[in-house]
């Protein structure tokens, strides 16, 4: 914990958001969000439906050109986004989707990244030939091959079944340790947030209301205790109605 915090204080934050406001959006409003994310830090953003999670993420991704608002934020130039749907272009094969916009020079690193997500040998398959989990792994490869300093993920596992989701958690954790981007993961799944994140923040009334370090101990028993305590605390904050 202290190591991480020192690192965060020494290095300039990867993401810095100051008093961000978004009104008249379709989904949720932001009412003055302040948030810093250190380089390499994995942050999960929780909140009820309509709390503005996606609005915040879309703002950081530069996709809120229709929103009205104010405030400032700073994100690295190399920012990758993973959407809830894999969003693969159906007319490009897997390799073409991963290297989209990068040119032929990126083909080798794309093959390597596809191997990392367990899709070696499927480079020339069409997207519709892949399962939902495989398609989302292609989306992950497409994000990682760009060596992002920030990875924005908007409920990337929401459409997957529980078993596939568990495997994707392991994969994302492993690859984010390996490539070490800062991650902002939007989710409504408390367990997902605890499993994956270094830090959990929660949006309430358009503001960051909760900011907790996860710090799961390595030993199984204290780990289970900490997980339970965190879940109880977060559930209480999310309120009686499940998100």
């Amino acid at each position: 914990m202290s190591a991480l915090e020192t690192a965060a204080q020494l290095a300039a934050p990867a993401v810095s958001i100051r008093n961000l406001r978004r009104t008249f959006t379709l989904k949720g409003v932001l009412n003055g969000v302040d948030l810093d994310i250190a380089p390499g830090e994995f942050v999960a953003l929780l909140g009820r439906s309509g709390s503005g999670k996606s609005t915040l993420l879309r703002a950081l991704a530069g996709l809120d050109y229709e929103a009205v608002g104010s405030g400032a934020y700073q994100v690295p130039e190399r920012t990758s986004v993973i959407f809830q749907d894999a969003r693969l272009l159906p007319w490009l094969d897997i390799l073409g989707n991963v290297t989209l916009g990068l040119g032929r020079a990126a083909r080798d690193s794309a093959r390597a990244t596809l191997a990392e997500v367990g899709l070696a040998g499927r480079e020339h398959a069409w997207p519709h030939e892949l399962s939902g989990g495989e398609q989302q792994r292609v989306a992950l490869a497409r994000a990682l091959v760009r060596a992002p300093e920030l990875l924005l993920a908007d409920e990337p596992f929401g459409a997957l079944d529980a078993l596939t989701r568990g495997r994707m958690h392991d994969l994302l954790r492993r690859l984010s340790d390996l490539h070490d981007p800062a991650v902002l993961l939007v989710t409504h799944d408390i367990d997902e947030a605890i499993t994956l994140a270094d830090r959990i923040v929660m949006l309430e009334d358009g503001r960051i209301a909760t900011d907790i370090r996860v710090d799961l101990p390595a030993e199984p028993e204290p780990r289970a205790h900490r997980t339970l305590a965190l879940r109880a605390a977060l559930l209480a904050r999310l309120g009686p109605t499940p998100a």
Partner: peptide
């Protein structure tokens, strides 16, 4: 959605 994707990938 593909237009958004192009935006986030900073396509020329």
């Amino acid at each position: 959605r593909y237009v958004e994707l192009a935006e986030t990938l900073r396509l020329s």
